[in-house]
């Protein structure tokens, strides 16, 4: 398996883990804390999953970079796939930021702004990983 593909898979799994863990915490709190859904204390858990997910990915990335230092581990194909994947994710992320801006304009609570960004960003990363992984398996159409 290509090293880059392995990174994409790690990213996919770390992202999925963070996303599921976050919603598990929030839904649990919403059920037990007896407050309105948008009043749940979401700031701590979000910071936690972003920190842990991002940190995990960074550690694995740095470890592999150190282990392979001085060696060429990517080629033109990896770069081409990365570009196609980034293009696939960028659209969704853009839509999420624009939606967040509109929500800010409508003066809704910060809860919604943060969650549009979080979910939109996650979907963007999902499109990124999905495009990259299918490209490794089936080639760039």
């Amino acid at each position: 398996m290509e090293l880059e593909l392995r990174h994409h898979l790690v990213g996919l799994i770390a992202g999925l883990g963070a996303f599921v863990a976050y919603w598990a915490i929030i839904l649990n709190r919403a059920a037990t804390d007896d407050v309105a859904f948008t009043e749940v204390a979401w700031r701590g858990p979000l910071l936690l999953v972003l920190g842990v997910g991002g940190g995990l990915y960074a550690v694995i990335y740095i470890l592999s970079a150190v282990r392979n230092r001085g060696r060429v581990v990517t080629d033109v194909r990896d770069a081409e796939i990365r570009r196609a994947a980034e293009e696939a994710g960028a659209g969704l992320t853009g839509i999420a930021s624009l939606t967040a801006l509109i929500l800010l304009g409508l003066d809704v609570s910060t809860f919604w702004v943060a969650h549009v960004l979080f979910v939109g960003g996650y979907l963007g990363s999902l499109a990124y990983s999905g495009k990259a992984i299918t490209a490794y398996r089936k080639g760039l159409a």
């Binding site: 979000l46 943060a114 960004l117």
Partner: peptide
């Protein structure tokens, strides 16, 4: 940048 924005929302 978007991560920064998310952190701003978390910081209230």
């Amino acid at each position: 940048g978007l991560l920064g924005v998310l952190i701003l929302t978390m910081a209230g």
